[in-house]
Design a protein around this nucleic acid. Structure first.
Lengths: 213, 213
DNA sequence: CCGGATCCACTAGGATACTG
DNA sequence: CAGTATCCTAGTGGATCCGG
């Protein structure tokens, strides 16, 4: 991208981060280290040459590094450097601001379950997870099941192993499921498991909180 | 901008905010309500049709409103709506991350003094302004002088009236001045005024703080 | 199958001239 | 002053192909 040519911290940041796709590539690498094809799968519509060029640029800007083998080799992955990981507050602020834009529903948009790793803790921001310590929730939606684990007062989201047992199981369309995470109710989501754990989970989700965004 | 087509809060946010120039237009309107020509002056290099189109888009997205007269009239200005103002955390996060990118210096980049309204409080983040309550600093740099005022423990930056008297006066190149704000020292900045006030001001700036970015 | 490179059609952005 | 209209170029999207 052409520089804005402004001696201003915002402009200098956007010079580096403002290219098309760049922020979404960083989102992916914030969620997990990824191989080239992982990124391509998580970014439907990106042209392969663009992905390659963005990664090169991010590497030369010091936000991303290749881990594994040197340049001409396979099975390597991309990972954020410390400087790249420092973009996290920007991504989080964007996600907070963008959360209300999910309300119109999914439409024809793509969805990947691992995005919940970023979105779910955000949607639960302001809830009190202390009483759920240790709870596990298996979530079936999108392309692959994921496992919610409450630990240290935080919600962590990881790929679900198979087989996988959890105290609570939820399933439904991504759109319904995100509504459910925000409100603790709504149609289109099936919740099963031990009655007490289910009840505690729904209670926490239904608790009033600062509205996201 | 074409939508990324992803059911993800980050992607939906970038769908709206990710167009070229959009973030800088929002930065301007976060600093102050602006007329069309104010924006054009603060965004050197923007094509006038692009500025018009971005403003139209931001208006239809509900981030910006025209204030003053209805469509076919002059002397009107653009202002952020509440939803537009909610982008502030994103801009601040970008500015924090971008602050280290100022170190290479100004080069050929443009500078506008009013940008200090956003940048200066950020560069002083982590300092204790309580002991400077009420201090005024006249800053001469860039295209117009600005006045720093410490009140309610915060640093506020406003256009300097003329004539203007302040307890402390600083002047120098933008690059030197920003370094000075970060470190309390460095070459290229002239500081004058009552010795005690000058000393207190330098002391606070020199105090260690969380490094920006 | 992974990690790209190449080619081509298209669209968004940049520069400038012009108008109510 | 506040934009529109135009032309041109650079960046993007999509498909296909290639080497390890």
């Amino acid at each position: 991208m052409r520089s804005y040519g402004q001696f201003c911290p915002v402009a200098r940041a956007v010079d580096v981060l403002g290219d098309r796709w760049t922020m979404l590539i960083l989102r992916e690498l914030l969620i997990r280290d990824s191989r080239y094809s992982d990124l391509r799968d998580a970014l439907p519509g990106i042209a392969t040459n663009l992905l390659a060029e963005r990664l090169r640029q991010l590497e030369s800007d010091g936000l991303v590094e290749r881990v594994g083998l040197p340049r001409p080799a396979s099975a390597a992955a991309y990972r954020l450097t410390d400087r790249g990981r420092a973009v996290e507050p920007v991504i989080h602020a964007l996600a907070q601001w963008g959360a209300p834009l999910l309300s119109p529903g999914q439409g024809d948009d793509a969805f990947r379950s691992h995005w919940l790793r970023l979105a779910a803790p955000l949607l639960l921001d302001g809830t009190d997870l202390a009483q759920l310590e240790g709870l596990t929730v298996l979530v079936r939606t999108g392309d692959a099941p994921v496992l919610f684990v409450v630990e240290a007062g935080r919600l962590d989201v990881r790929p679900a192993p198979s087989p996988c047992s959890a105290e609570v199981e939820m399933s439904g369309e991504p759109s319904a499921l995100l509504d459910f995470l925000r409100t603790g109710g709504g149609p289109g989501v099936t919740v099963t498991g031990a009655a007490e754990a289910v009840r505690a989970w729904r209670d926490v989700l239904a608790r009033s909180r600062t509205p996201a965004g």
